[in-house]
């Protein structure tokens, strides 16, 4: 084991620190395995249509007449009344910021210079609090607010593949932009 002290290691917590070098040199007893697990999830009618419409630059939802609900992303059944949903309905590509976070770390906990703005957008035309998660752009972190009106910025048509990232991000909706 490496015996050098780690910087910042408190005196009250002595001990031997395991370094990746120790693992490589097999000073640690271990066995190794990497599972091979691959899946191709069938999307079904609701999500397939949603992605197809995104590719065409449109956002589509489903209505539940029983609950007077417009659901986006669309579903073939309604989890409130447990009945099948009824009609397809096109929605606007604008919405309202429900909540957001300004993320400064990547998954490896490295600092990101330009923080990532991510949040939940409820889509105009859908029921309140119905929408999805996405990025925000063309704004400063300090401008982002709950309740802010935003609009989708789409990738150019030839770059769209039928994915939620066919929308690049949502930008502030300024009067007349619609």
């Amino acid at each position: 084991m490496s015996e050098e002290r780690i910087e910042g290691q408190p005196k009250y917590a002595p001990g031997t620190h395991v370094r990746s070098k120790d693992i490589r040199e097999r000073k640690i007893t271990y066995t190794w395995w990497e599972p091979e697990a691959q899946y191709a999830f069938s999307l079904g009618p609701a999500n397939s249509r949603f992605l197809k419409e995104l590719k065409a630059g449109k956002i589509i939802g489903r209505t539940c007449r029983k609950c007077d609900r417009v659901i986006v992303p669309p579903r073939m059944f309604c989890d409130w009344c447990y009945d099948t949903t009824h009609e397809w309905v096109y929605l606007k590509d604008t919405g309202t910021v429900e909540t957001f976070s300004i993320s400064y770390l990547d998954p490896d906990a490295h600092l990101i210079e330009d923080p990532i703005l991510v949040g939940v957008i409820s889509i105009d035309g859908a029921s309140p609090k119905h929408g999805f998660m996405h990025y925000f752009g063309e704004m400063k972190p300090e401008d982002l607010r709950i309740g802010m009106k935003v609009k989708a910025v789409w990738k150019p048509k030839e770059e769209r593949v039928g994915s939620v990232t066919d929308i690049k991000y949502f930008k502030p909706l300024i009067g007349g932009d619609e």
Partner: peptide, 15 residues
């Protein structure tokens, strides 16, 4: 069953 998602599949049985 490529025509349905696993969610729709489970819904079918439970319904």
């Amino acid at each position: 069953t490529p025509d349905v998602s696993w969610k729709e599949f489970m819904y079918d049985a439970c319904k």
